[in-house]
Design a protein around this nucleic acid. Sequence first.
RNA 1: GAGCCUGUAGCUCAACGGCAGAGCGCUACACUGUGGCUGUAGAUGUUGUGGGUUCGAAACCCAUCAGGCUCCCCA
Length: 425
Amino acid sequence: MKKIIQAVKGTREFYPEQMFARNFIYEKVRAASEMFGYQEWDGPFIEPIDLYAAKSGEELVKKQSFTFEDRGGESVTLRPELTPSLARMIAAKQGELNFPVRWWSFGPFWRYESPQRGRTREFFQWNIDMLGVDSPEADAELIAVGATFLRSVGLSPSLTQISVNNRRLMESQFDSLDIPADKRVDVSNLVDRRGKMESAKWDAYALEIGLNQKQLDGLKDLLGNFDLWKQSAELTRTFAALEALGVRDYVKFDPNIMRGLLYYTGTVFEAFDTSGSVKRAIFGGGRYDNLLADVGGQPLSGVGFAMGDVVAGIILQEARLIPEFQPSPAQVLVTVFDEKLLTQSYALAAELRNMGLNAMVYPEPTKLQKQFKFADKMKMKVALVLGPDEAEKGLVVVKNLTTGEQAQVAREAVLESVKGILKNG
RNA sequence: GAGCCUGUAGCUCAACGGCAGAGCGCUACACUGUGGCUGUAGAUGUUGUGGGUUCGAAACCCAUCAGGCUCCCCA
């Protein structure tokens, strides 16, 4: 125990129970994506560091990525995000793809950050994008995909809300406040921090970055105006589409959502759990216009979002929405009575498998008590006993582990009997 | 990269300078052809790791590793 080499910091080990939870999320992600016609795809897990150096900030690439030299001297990075790979792959086949492209992916990513609640160094992320259409309705569709996922896992609108804003709307508001272009990044950061700082400190910080009192007052009015979207023709259409898509109850306008200043150019959105138990977003995304230019493609607009499995997993677990773990994929245990009858039990199990039933054999002759205990702990539904009495008469004991009832059944009738129990269980 | 908190049995935790414990789980038996429930008995361990202080350290000090909370960051 003491000398065991530890797992790498910030990684998670998926024992079957955790794997079950991860696959639950994966299945729901797949279902929501495919319901809207999106195709599954993936990129390489390792990429040249230059792919990220172009777009992402210097600090991100240098300090928050897993980067190393391979044996050929190339600097490679464990992918910290998927979008640059997406941009490259789209650009490479831009002439032959059938637009609009609707793609989704679920895979591992790595970021060299200090692990905290909701944040690990190795995580899984759902990415989903539509490229080649620039419309408020396309934005609404992506938001609807996210809402559909939330609904499908049982996260109701009272538990989770998707906040929506629009960068162009905010830019025009900043214009009318005469906030100069070179202050926009600082102001974005300022807005992002509003929820984290005390009001007085936030005001002081605003003045510190060079806003005057009038601009600060204007900004506060702006951030408190939850009807602002009505001034935006774009958002008006987006919300109308969300209504039509049947997910309006998940969505609200929030001028405080900025999502940094990264590559988003239009509508942006983030989903949060309303309990505030996890402060990090469940998913976030928006519209981007200039992604392909960096990798040599023709201008192409897209909209998409990403969801990490860590925050989503915590919220699902807290809401008790992850289904009960079923330890054994086989619900039938064929017990082994003794050495002599071992091969007969193996043959019986093989018969059942050939008939399409998942079945497990206890792998050695031992006390039946132990075998039943094993079946119980594995939450199996049926146990079969093939003892000397049964072997002699061509019978098998079929026991329903849920009710405790058991009966001797002709060997030919075992499959039907087992299926009957499983159907009612 | 910075600050703070935590680390004791498989799990959750107690003991806070003087014999390392409880609950749950585990194993055995009651029940030698049958699980769950109950009862009885039993085993838990180099107190994360390494060093120091002390007659004596799980406890105090230093270092280190891991987890958590904040700052930073969050593609």
